[in-house]
């Protein structure tokens, strides 16, 4: 992945290439793997959001859940999170999902991956 992102200004700002823009369609989500982390990318009303791909409540891959507008439902215990800021909209989860800064530029989606790779 570093080969693709070398010398790009976004990378200097600690952004990492996440996916091609056209791989995340409106109202849909995909998951990507960065380091040891799973990240869900979703597009709602044109904007791409990136949140932790594993539910904050119990081990469950969020990409197997459902996205309804900005509500992201976990497929295991049906907790619901706001994809925009990771906040819990419905239990049983109590901890928000981590969110990542997203930049979309020239057909590519970048996320600020400080939390993943460290400073």
């Amino acid at each position: 992945m570093t080969n693709q992102t070398e010398n790009l200004p976004l990378e200097e700002n600690k952004y990492t290439f996440a996916a091609a823009s056209d791989s995340v369609k409106e109202g849909e989500m995909i998951d990507i793997f960065l380091g040891k982390e799973t990240v869900v990318l979703a597009r709602v009303d044109g904007s791409v959001y990136a949140v932790d791909g594993i539910c904050s409540h119990a081990y469950s891959e969020m990409v197997d859940g459902e996205l309804e507008d900005h509500c992201l439902y976990c497929p295991l215990h049906f907790a619901c999170f706001d994809i925009r800021d990771g906040s819990v909209l419905e239990g049983p989860a109590v901890t928000p999902l981590s969110v990542y800064d997203v930049m979309e530029q020239d057909g590519s989606i970048w996320i600020k991956a400080l939390d993943i790779y460290g400073e």
Partner: peptide, 9 residues
């Protein structure tokens, strides 16, 4: 098949 969970419900 967690992908089917919400649809099945």
């Amino acid at each position: 098949q967690p992908k089917n969970a919400l649809a099945v419900r």
